[in-house]
Design a protein around this nucleic acid. Structure first.
Length: 258
DNA sequence: ATGTCTCAGGGACTGAGA
């Protein structure tokens, strides 16, 4: 079972790359963020032709998330129950797996802009609501994975220049506390269960030749419940699509479960 | 270096968001 996440920064622009990547990697599940399109414009036909069904929560211009899977995702949940939010940032669904149903939660956690902005406060409130909701979800679904763009670099080793980023948005202590609260639910950052290359990142700013200089952050994560994490055999970041013409600023993250 | 990319509105370029 191969599960993956990718912030595509516009599915309209990136669809050819997504189709190529699905053909090359053949993941069983792919979580997408920043679709930047409405549900009616989601390319269900092309995705179906590639062998995938989709659960989608889109909106015009901004945000938007989807879960692609080989069979129709079931029991779809859009948004965090009880948390009023016009931004389409989260979708949950159950997908088939030979070892038993798998609960997938695909999240596009708010960016937060800067630590002194309203958007940062919204990010922290959003994370509190997510954590409270997931506590119950984990009881309901012991085989759960939370994949997405967290917009949080959990530790200094996830940051190309920790001094420059110290207390900045994506790296601040309240954000890292929120990430640790998710871990505290019993989730495991499966990337760190394995030996990884130094300076592994999943996002690089488009500016300043960020990718070429590997000035990146690791902000895209796959968190697995305890029962699932024990069956995780690898977790890698695929930098290949970031090297293409007109890339997303994010690279996909992939985990395999036996 | 306010450095790049995407989208919307409106019909060229600017602003928002990341």
């Amino acid at each position: 079972m191969k599960i993956a996440t990718w912030n595509v920064n516009s599915l309209k622009v990136r669809l050819p790359q997504v189709l190529d990547w699905l053909a090359a990697q053949r993941p069983d599940v792919l979580c997408l963020q920043e679709l930047k399109l409405e549900d009616k414009d989601f390319p269900l036909g092309e995705i179906a032709a590639a062998g995938y069904r989709a659960a989608v929560s889109g909106q015009k211009t901004y945000n938007g998330v989807a879960i692609l899977a080989r069979h129709e995702p079931q029991d779809i949940q859009r948004g965090i129950p009880g948390f009023d939010d016009i931004q389409q940032r989260i979708i949950g669904a159950t997908v088939d797996d030979p070892s038993g149903p798998l609960r997938i939660v695909c999240a596009y956690i708010p960016n937060g802009q800067s630590v002194d902005s309203d958007k940062y406060q919204y990010k922290l409130r959003w994370l509190t609501a997510l954590t409270a909701w997931l506590r119950g979800e984990l009881e309901k679904y012991p085989r759960l994975a939370l994949l997405g763009d967290y917009n949080i670099a959990p530790e200094d080793r996830d940051v190309h220049d920790p001094e420059a980023w110290k207390n900045q948005v994506l790296c601040s202590e309240p954000e890292r506390d929120a990430f640790r609260a998710l871990i505290g639910l019993g989730l495991s950052d499966v990337f760190r269960r394995f030996e990884q290359p130094e300076k592994s990142y999943s996002w690089w700013d488009y500016r300043m030749m960020g990718f070429r200089r590997n000035r990146g952050l690791r902000i895209d994560h796959i968190l697995c419940s305890q029962t699932l994490a024990e069956h995780c055999t690898t977790c890698t970041i695929d930098k290949t699509p970031r090297k293409l013409e007109r890339p997303s600023d994010h690279a996909p993250v992939i985990a395999e479960l036996d």
